[in-house]
Design a protein around this nucleic acid. Sequence first.
DNA 1: CGAAGAACTTAATCCGGATCAATTTTTGCG
DNA 2: CGCAAAAATTGATCCGGATTAAGTTCTTCG
Lengths: 241, 241
Amino acid sequence: MVSVARHRPAELQSCEDCGIGRLCLSSNLLGGNLQELKPFIGNQFTVQRRERLFDAYSPQRALYVVRAGSFKTCEIDADGDEQVLEFYLPGDVLGLEDLLQRRHRADAVALEESSICTVPLDRFGQDDESDSIIFREMFSVMCCKLGEQRQLIHQLGKADATARLASFLLHLSDRLAERNLPARQFRLSMGRTDIASYLRSTLETASRSFSALQREGFIHVRGKNVQIIDDPAMRERFLLT
Amino acid sequence: MVSVARHRPAELQSCEDCGIGRLCLSSNLLGGNLQELKPFIGNQFTVQRRERLFDAYSPQRALYVVRAGSFKTCEIDADGDEQVLEFYLPGDVLGLEDLLQRRHRADAVALEESSICTVPLDRFGQDDESDSIIFREMFSVMCCKLGEQRQLIHQLGKADATARLASFLLHLSDRLAERNLPARQFRLSMGRTDIASYLRSTLETASRSFSALQREGFIHVRGKNVQIIDDPAMRERFLLT
DNA sequence: CGAAGAACTTAATCCGGATCAATTTTTGCG
DNA sequence: CGCAAAAATTGATCCGGATTAAGTTCTTCG
């Protein structure tokens, strides 16, 4: 069993200097005014690989913005096995779906050494105007999430295992590109088991799907290193919607 | 092809008199003060069975609260077949997930003759305070939706077809109970095809699952009429989480 | 560096549910 | 009511992916 993150303080950094920039909390409603966010930012720290950022059922004290690295959220179901719910990249916010209950509903686990920026919940309710700004931010992020989940539900229903893996990789590639990270060739921070769990499949099937995509010339894969060879063909072939 | 609803005006009714009461817009943040909602309510009308309340891709002009009857939302995918996204009962709000784009992303179809209460979008932005009240309302409803979708995703991954139908029926029963409608014996307003589509299965499998649940004594089913015989056993057996 | 274990790949078998097909039941309407 | 169309049930077959089982390749850490 892995212990919960000991919060090592990291160097403080203003929102303006943060590499995440406009992606943080999506920022589409802010009009790029990062000043507005400042009063909400709490302390920052790093989390080691396999450490938990928070535990399922624990009371929620903050939202967490990924500054660097990556996370998964997962819940343990009645049968005792883990279900991966989401993967989080730099700029993504952990904890939004727990706001209503103020209680976490999943474990958040670092997939590699990662850096986190907190938005303590006690910052809310201080000032109505900035409150409503952050509220709209969160609303818009949640709209996106709903759309993504809908997408996933659609896929689980119609696409076969290989198509699901393909669109997982393409979506990941898109998200990396948005973040100005290498998007055609990258190293997966999550294992086959996590991917399979996220896609509601098995690790054997995930592995076979990787092989199939490589055999058909869409990607090159060597363990966790993935290169997307023919992005347009892959989209044409696998992205139905 | 079915035409879009012609908006027959219905008798106006105040929120206080509306049978939906506290369920409307979930109302947990309102503290039961239905007065607050009043300025947002637009006109009311009825929609006939199979008529569409709105079309996918059309610009969004309002939120729609179901006063009576039921709806499904569905989208047509690339292959041309329909996917049911959600079912809506009295008190449920249609259109929340389209707010960000102000454009509908699915068709909304009445499953029976139904009555609708509109919340025109132009009511927003008039008054900051009541605005933020309704905003929190919507936020809370969306949190619930995220949770429900998560639930569905979980099920699609783990539960077999019969278990999925069972928890669909139990969830429906719970929602009917919340609304003080008969919850142990009711008539499904949606067909097998819709249920199958919602559960990402086929109508044959859905039909077989109905038969299986009846054979094992959990329910009695005769076409669209369903009676839940052994609710506790059914929950024990099929609701994993 | 090298051993032990974790993670991954590949192959063989099996099963749940999709698909195809044939009735039967229900619904809507003249 | 009675007929036609739509919806639902039931049965037979087939296939994708789960399961089981090795074997191989990465990691990690003494």
